[in-house]
Design a binder for these strands. Sequence first.
DNA 1: TTGACAGGCAAGCTACGACTTGCCTATTGT
DNA 2: ACAATAGGCAAGTCGTAGCTTGCCTGTCAA
Lengths: 92, 92
Amino acid sequence: MFRALADPTRRAILDELTERDDQTLFELCSRLATKHGMASTRQAISQHVEVLEAAGLVRTRREGRYKFHRLDTAPLRQITERWSIPPLEDEQ
Amino acid sequence: MFRALADPTRRAILDELTERDDQTLFELCSRLATKHGMASTRQAISQHVEVLEAAGLVRTRREGRYKFHRLDTAPLRQITERWSIPPLEDEQ
DNA sequence: TTGACAGGCAAGCTACGACTTGCCTATTGT
DNA sequence: ACAATAGGCAAGTCGTAGCTTGCCTGTCAA
């Protein structure tokens, strides 16, 4: 899962899913291209999504010929727990 | 900094510094070898530390011929803020 | 002052990750 | 039925991350 976060395109996918859940692969492709300025092919995105799925950061649901993607931030807790991140105080 | 977290050896270094600050490079080497079972050379660890420094996750202080390493978890906040991790409550 | 110790620098090797290309499957609409 | 659409599979290319090797610099103790 740490490896999954290492790639900027994958982080952009997480960003995209943060502000809008249940996107299809094609939606993700076009939105990444326009809003994040990343010109990636569908296959590239598809492979990134696979990695994110394997890391448990993205859940997918098949529906007809569409595959919807949903963000799951639960695995990210590992990070805050492992190195005990100080609870974010108001940094002036 | 995400890339810095992607490597298991580097995460082990952070773990090591979590439970004991101000270790020298040689200390880190031997402790990683014994406690974490990672047989890495000094140069390898040194390069990992460089990456962690560049990511702002490790602060160093030179003292004579020793170089002490200290953990800085501040950059990790980015993660919790970026994808709004729910504040870890007592789970169950 | 000189040898032992802590660490740095730089070039080279290797393996793996990101991406492409080409073709295939399955679902839907007309 | 068949074309269009959403997605999957697999092989191949290329760059770079991680590691090693060899040698160099700087500090301290005898």
